[in-house]
């Protein structure tokens, strides 16, 4: 696998969009990239095309398309989408037709992930439930319950993100008040829970409302570590004026190994992903200092004997526009980032 050099990251192509993309998934084998938008549609791009223009637009949802997962099941290539309309829709990637639809959550579907073999899907919704689905049938296998239904101040909360370990054995979910749960993917047993309270700001005095939450989660390649991201404590909750904040945890202990920002960048980290060789942790988001791509060096194995608070080596790229999701094509050292009114393609050539 080619190594990346964040210092050489270059924007290669941009597609201007009328709205905001909230979701992204790719099927490299099928040569397609799928972006979910606030126009309730899935915009389909040709990965091979130099000029990025949608080649198709799939409609069927009735609200923002907030989550996407591409799954290959034998000869079948599927795309599964989640939406604020509370539904999951299974699409035949070959013809863009809906195959199945399920009323998934009593609340917005916030995130969706597939197990590595594609046999199961995992969704997270604002009913504060994690649900495990059989990909081929759409059958609900299991519902995982445990996240608090209200914030400590008595307000509604949200379950923003779900992640699957690379070996498919573990699931992780993160909520608005900064709580992370790790579940056994086969049994649904809650294996661990820990708090990252810095990610949840409640201003009890000046503005009396909250901001933040666990907005991004990613397992390391070996599944031992879990990266957790969002925005650090925010002084003025009117804006995303707090620092980008990530932590890496040995989730079994549970013990935090490190906490870092992105060179003082103010904003929310909406997605995290370890590079497949675990040499870098990639993050993206946006906020007070506009959008960003960040690369934290993780080559040195985390030292579990101490809690590192010193900044990790980090490379940060300021982008024009808030990024909501990215997809790393490690084989080609490309990164596709979507968000506010555009899709950007970045080259990460070493």
């Amino acid at each position: 696998m080619p190594r990346i050099d964040p210092a050489k990251t270059k924007a290669r192509a941009t597609y201007k969009h009328a709205g905001t993309f909230y979701a992204l998934s790719a099927d490299p084998a099928g040569g397609r990239l799928y972006a979910g938008s606030d126009d309730a549609a899935i915009h389909v791009f040709d990965l091979a095309a130099e000029k990025k223009e949608p080649v198709a637009r799939w409609t069927g949802h009735e609200n923002y398309v907030s989550a996407l997962a591409c799954v290959n099941r034998g000869a079948k290539r599927l795309v599964v989408s989640g939406s604020y309309d509370r539904r999951l829709i299974w699409w035949d990637a070959g013809n863009g037709r809906p195959v199945r639809s399920a009323e998934a959550h009593q609340g917005w579907v916030r995130d969706l992930a597939a197990l590595p073999d594609g046999s199961r899907l995992v969704s997270a919704g604002d009913d504060m439930l994690v649900k495990v689905w059989e990909t081929d049938t759409g059958r609900l296998i299991r519902t995982l319950e445990g996240h608090a239904k209200r914030t400590p101040q008595g307000h509604v909360t949200a379950l923003y993100v779900v992640a699957v370990s690379p070996d498919g054995k573990y699931l992780a979910s993160g909520d608005r008040i900064g709580e992370v749960h790790v579940w056994d993917a086969d049994t649904g047993k809650l294996l661990q829970r820990f708090q990252v309270p810095v990610l949840y700001t409640y201003d009890p005095r000046q503005r009396k409302r909250s901001i933040g939450g666990v907005r991004s989660l990613a397992f390391s390649a070996d599944g031992k570590h879990l990266a957790v991201g969002g925005i650090g404590q925010v002084e003025n909750v009117d804006g995303l004026s707090g620092p980008v904040h990530i932590e890496v945890w040995d989730w079994r202990q549970p013990q935090r190994h490190l906490a870092a920002g992105a060179l003082g960048h103010k904003g929310m980290c909406n997605q995290l992903q370890f590079h497949p060789d675990d040499s870098w942790l990639l993050g993206a988001g946006g906020g007070g200092d506009n959008g960003f791509l960040a690369f934290w060096k993780t080559e040195t194995p985390p030292d579990s004997s101490k809690d590192r608070k010193a900044p990790m080596p980090v490379h940060r790229i300021k982008t024009d526009g808030h990024i909501h999701r990215f997809w790393l094509n490690a084989a080609k050292n490309e990164l596709y980032a979507v968000g506010y009114r555009k899709l950007d393609v970045w080259s990460l050539l070493s």
Binding site: R176, K208, I211, D238, G239, L240, M268, G287, G288
Partner: peptide, 15 residues
């Protein structure tokens, strides 16, 4: 107070 949602408007209005 305080409803001034210059960012994350939908999250703050849910609350």
């Amino acid at each position: 107070a305080w409803w001034d949602s210059h960012a994350d408007n939908f999250e703050s209005h849910r609350e």
